[in-house]
Simulated scan of single mutants.
Amino acid sequence: MKFVAFKRELQGTGASRRLRMGGKVPGIVYGAGEPAMIELDHNALYHALKKESFHSSILEMELDGASSKVVLRDLQMHAFKPLVQHIDFQRVDATTRIRKRVPLHFINEADSPCVKTDKGTMSHIATELEIECLAEKLPEFLTVDLGSLATGQSIHVDDLKLDSHIKVRTHGRKNPVIATALPPKVEEIVAPVVAAVPAKGKKKK
């Protein structure tokens, strides 16, 4: 994905506030050289952020007529409004090794024995993983194949088929679960309780 940034001349809280009022977003680009203060068009950035690949892939940034490869590093949103307050990017090259969270794409769920035969469901325990790899080989997502999962079985991190250059960071957790095949839910039908109506006594003659 490509986007255009502009050099930000003024810094400080007041300058950033005026930028936001003018429909701009202050930001910074660091790594592989001196940090650069930048500004971006808010609406264009906001729509780009809705795309999954903007968060988990190498981006091409045009600044002052020159292009460089960057990855999104940090994003600050307004507390309750759909407004981007600040954004950080990191420059990368062929030798840069990075850590990045990438989404998981689950496939073949409907064809699994759990869902197709047993009418069960899949529980997605994780929706993304943090990986370490060369920046130029950063995948947009990781594929999780659920096609062979039977009821009661799970897929763990070690079960993923990843390229040799990708290392999953589990932060001390040993082979965490990614997805689990659950049996179908059994609905218990409870009969309504009918209150007993006392018999009326016979009237005396």
Score class of each variant (00 low, 15 high):
L146G: 02
D111H: 09
T121H: 14
G120C: 09
E132W: 09
E136Y: 03
E140C: 05
L138N: 09
L138P: 08
V144W: 01
L146R: 06
D118I: 01
S112C: 08
G120M: 07
T121E: 14
V115Q: 11
D145T: 01
A135Y: 06
A126V: 02
T121I: 10
A150H: 12
T127M: 01
A126C: 08
D111G: 00
K137G: 00
G147H: 02
S123P: 00
K119N: 14
G120H: 08
E128V: 00
E136P: 00
L134R: 10
L138H: 06
T127Y: 03
T127R: 11
L129G: 10
T121Y: 13
V144F: 01
D118R: 14
L142D: 09
L129D: 07
A126L: 15
M122R: 06
K116N: 05
E136V: 01
E128C: 13
C114D: 03
A126K: 14
A135V: 09
M122A: 10
E130H: 04
A135W: 06
V144C: 04
M122V: 12
T143Q: 10
A126G: 00
A150N: 12
H124E: 06
T121Q: 15
L138M: 09
M122I: 15
E132N: 05
G147A: 12
P113R: 09
M122C: 06
V115K: 11
T143M: 08
T117L: 15
S112H: 09
G120W: 04
T127V: 06
V144K: 07
I125H: 05
L146E: 03
T143H: 01
V115N: 11
L138T: 08
F141H: 15
D111C: 05
E130F: 06
L129M: 08
C114S: 15
A150I: 09
T127F: 04
T121R: 15
I131T: 10
P139Q: 10
